[in-house]
């Protein structure tokens, strides 16, 4: 009691600084400097000006890509919620054993490389895949193009990001005291009203966590949209990649990267002020 406080108050300690310095230096050199490089390039490539930002912010193509990115991210977030909430609910209302099995499944999905999962969706949605076969069987022939559309990339992203949502909601749901639900029921809350007035508010923190996390990851998502999406409906990350790889337009790529970064950090900053960033991934 009072022990830790006294130790801190008594002597200014050098230990934490000594322990922290190697990592701090490392991150300064190999994380902050490259990030700073991006910012510099966005103003200096090919020449010192705001031209890159001007083009990104006023060009029709770029505006469309940003719009597309937000729409997609919003859609993915909403879908993840619609997918994640019922599952988290189910996990809290089945036997322990079943819940553990579902948890194992979700964990496995989470631990599986998203390249693998993207590939699996290519198989599922491909022209020789089961979905098309199923559609043909029920009379939808020829089947619509599924692969390389906004549909396929969105679906795959929902699948890839759903575990984040599920884990977040499941954790808060698990902490809800069953006595609380029973007492709400004894007070006359049933069905929808029980859900609306008791369950939903109690799980709100998990929902907020999951949504912020999914949205933020989604707006910066590169791999899945590039592999599964329509080339005509690129997302920001994909466009940045194209600028760098194909056109060697480092200035434009950097300017877009900085805008993406600012938006991401702005969302996280708002979140940080309300809840604290450490809770987001914890």
């Amino acid at each position: 009691m009072g022990a830790t406080i006294s130790r801190l108050a008594d002597k200014p300690n050098l230990w934490p600084w000594l322990l922290l310095t190697p990592l701090a230096l490392y991150l300064a050199v190999f994380f902050a400097v490259p990030l700073f490089d991006v910012a510099v390039m966005s103003f200096t490539e090919p020449s010192l000006s705001f031209a890159n930002y001007e083009r990104v912010l006023t060009g029709k193509l770029y505006q469309q890509v940003f719009m597309n990115t937000f729409m997609t991210a919003g859609l993915v977030t909403l879908s993840c919620l619609l997918v994640g909430y019922p599952l988290a609910y189910l996990m809290n209302h089945v036997t322990r054993r079943t819940a553990m099995l579902i948890l194992l499944l979700v964990t496995m999905s989470f631990w599986t490389s998203f390249l693998v999962r993207t590939y699996a969706w290519m198989v599922l949605l491909g022209n020789n895949g089961p979905v098309v076969a199923f559609l043909a069987a029920i009379g939808v022939d020829p089947a619509p193009q599924l692969l390389f559309t906004r549909f396929s990339s969105t679906l795959a992203m929902v699948h890839i990001l759903a575990p984040y949502m599920i884990m977040n909601i499941y954790t808060v749901m698990q902490k809800i005291d069953p006595v609380l639900i029973r007492s709400a029921e004894s007070l006359g809350a049933r069905g929808w009203s029980l859900f609306r007035h008791v369950y939903l508010p109690l799980t709100a923190p998990g929902i907020a966590n999951g949504c912020v996390l999914v949205f933020v990851i989604c707006i910066g998502f590169y791999v899945t949209p590039v592999l599964l999406g329509s080339p005509r409906e690129q997302m920001v990350a994909g466009l940045i990649g194209t600028q760098i790889e194909e056109f060697l337009a480092f200035g434009m790529g950097s300017a877009m990267a900085i805008i993406l970064l600012v938006i991401t950090l702005a969302i996280l900053a708002v979140y940080h002020r309300r809840f604290g960033l450490d809770k987001l991934w914890g």
Binding site: M41, I240, G241, S254, L265, L277
Partner: peptide
């Protein structure tokens, strides 16, 4: 310092990719 530790998780990887490519 706490916040600094978490930053690499907050920055989209595509942004870091551009940075590392040049750096």
């Amino acid at each position: 310092a706490d916040l600094m530790m978490m930053m690499p998780l907050a920055v989209p990887h595509i942004v870091m990719a551009v940075g590392y490519y040049s750096f």
